[in-house]
């Protein structure tokens, strides 16, 4: 059936089977392969994207269910060549090794800071607890989100 989904602000239409998972739609239709998958059971968080601003697991939502919603993926974070503070924080704090969980982690973190610009370390850990990182032991991911929160606040103050 014909599906039309707003992905990163662009309307993407295609005829798909009702059973197609949103993660596959994102990866195949606009070809945005930054969103990954790592399990079959909604446990790993590699597929997290924002749906109407909230992080969701795109492996557990059908593409057809997403029509009429705004999807944002990792590819939307950088705007006009300027990195999102979350992206910069992940780089600055060495919060990624293999990079496979990174898009899901960054999107989850972006949503956290949108809702809570000054989270505690425990709030950060809770927010990302729906994702698995096999490489970093999470310490530097927490530091990266903290970095982003601080730099975002500083930039806001300057503005």
């Amino acid at each position: 059936m014909k599906v039309s989904i707003s992905i990163n602000g662009e309307n993407v239409s295609r005829d798909v089977e009702p059973r197609q998972l949103l993660v596959h739609y994102i990866r195949e239709t606009p070809g945005l392969t930054g969103t990954h998958w790592g399990c079959d059971t909604s446990n790993c968080g590699a597929c997290v994207v924002l749906m109407d601003g909230k992080p969701v697991k795109s492996c557990t939502i059908l593409a057809v269910m997403s029509e009429g919603h705004e999807i944002a993926t990792v590819e939307s974070l950088e705007v006009d060549g300027e990195l999102d503070p979350i992206q910069a924080g992940f780089h600055e704090q060495h919060a990624l090794h293999c990079g496979f969980c990174t898009p899901g982690m960054m999107m989850t973190a972006r949503a956290l800071l949108d809702e809570n610009p000054d989270p505690t370390d425990h709030e950060i850990r809770t927010a990302i607890s729906g994702g698995i990182c096999r490489c970093t032991g999470y310490k530097n991911i927490v530091a990266a989100v903290r970095w982003a929160a601080d730099h975002q606040a500083a930039a806001k103050q300057e503005a």
Binding site: R27, L32, T33, G34, T35, H36, W37, T73, V74, E75, L77, E78, L83, Q87, A88, F90, H91, H94, L96, G99, F100, T102, P103, M106
Partner: peptide, 16 residues
């Protein structure tokens, strides 16, 4: 890390 540039943009190239 030099390799971060592609990963933080979702531009890594994994098998799938």
């Amino acid at each position: 890390r030099k390799e971060d540039a592609r990963f933080i943009r979702g531009q890594g190239t994994y098998l799938d």
